[in-house]
Design a protein around this nucleic acid. Structure first.
Lengths: 173, 173
DNA sequence: CTGCCTGCAAACGATTTGCACCAGC
DNA sequence: GCTGGTGCAAATCGTTTGCAGGCAG
């Protein structure tokens, strides 16, 4: 069990963040965050929903999806990239990394020789046979240009929806 | 336009890889690879399908999906993780990285202080405001334990399917 | 000639949305 | 009480699968 941050502390953080963002602190939000914290893997929304259902029956799957979305928005949770779920492709080539906009998902390649020779971790302890790596830098793209603190979003949080139109990605060179 | 590797060279590589894997070299495979190479963003399968449709009308979306899958399998293309498409969550906490199995998608956390202070790239040129990063180490997990060269897969390439059951991810600590 | 690949259409699973009701502040 | 959150069910989107015929080797 690895608890860098206690669940209680995180719940307080949730409370604070909700207040800052003017979001009601609902039992569902609390339950989803608790459920997420008790798993140390990277559960899918549905897995979280299952866990939530155990501690707070009656919470709908839809709500879990929405709450997770909110938690990500207020920066208390994060969506993890996963090849099994990903849907974007590139040609396999030289080592490079990605700049990813957490707002809209816009993503561009990055090459930086300083980052090309990182030490490989002792993956053997995990039974992993590593062959490659790439770094994902998270932030805000020019278009989204959000204040990094997210203190006062132009658009109310609950109205913002993840950018879904992948055509935007086409604007990089 | 950045072409580290010429399209022609990649097509030759495709030819070679197909031969090595005992896969027929079809016009569709060629077309999909070409389409993918001509984009420098990270297109979705559907976007690739659109491009392919322009140069080789009549290629079905299904085929594009299958071909992309094949290209990834023979290591000439890669699925890129993308938050907009991902479906796994974790609590936002200290910096950590991920070991990801390219076979089954199994993913575990990794902490390595050597990797915690990487230099941030000159993201301003791209208009990005970076706040964080995480490294994705790709490889093969213990369970999959594939020979990294993929020279002689136990299971014929065309029969292998990506592991889709997320419950496996639950086995890490 | 044989087997894999492709195209089509239907199936599928995950996620999102519209609407009415309920709860937090 | 007002505003936004939630639940339900239906819609949607991306992706996969079964099957018959076509093409590469």
């Amino acid at each position: 069990m690895r608890h860098r941050v206690s669940i209680a502390a995180k719940l307080e953080e949730l409370e604070r963040l909700c207040r800052e963002h003017g979001l009601p602190l609902t039992v569902q939000r609390r339950a989803v965050l608790e459920a997420l914290m008790q798993r140390h893997d990277h559960p899918t929304a549905d897995q979280v929903a299952e866990d939530v259902a155990l501690r707070l029956p009656g919470v709908s799957r839809t709500t879990v999806y929405r709450v997770l979305d909110t938690l990500v928005r207020i920066n208390i949770a994060r969506k993890v990239c996963h090849p099994g779920a990903a849907a974007r492709f590139e040609v396999e080539s030289h080592r490079h990394h990605h700049l990813v906009c957490v707002e809209c998902g816009h993503m561009i390649d990055l090459e930086d020789s300083r980052l090309d020779e990182l030490p490989f971790p002792e993956s053997e302890v995990h039974g992993f046979q590593l062959t490659d790596y790439s770094i994902q830098f998270r932030g805000t793209c020019a278009a989204c240009g959000r204040k990094s603190g997210a203190a006062k979003p132009e658009i109310p949080l609950h109205q913002r929806r993840r950018e879904r139109n992948p055509s935007q990605t086409g604007k990089n060179s």
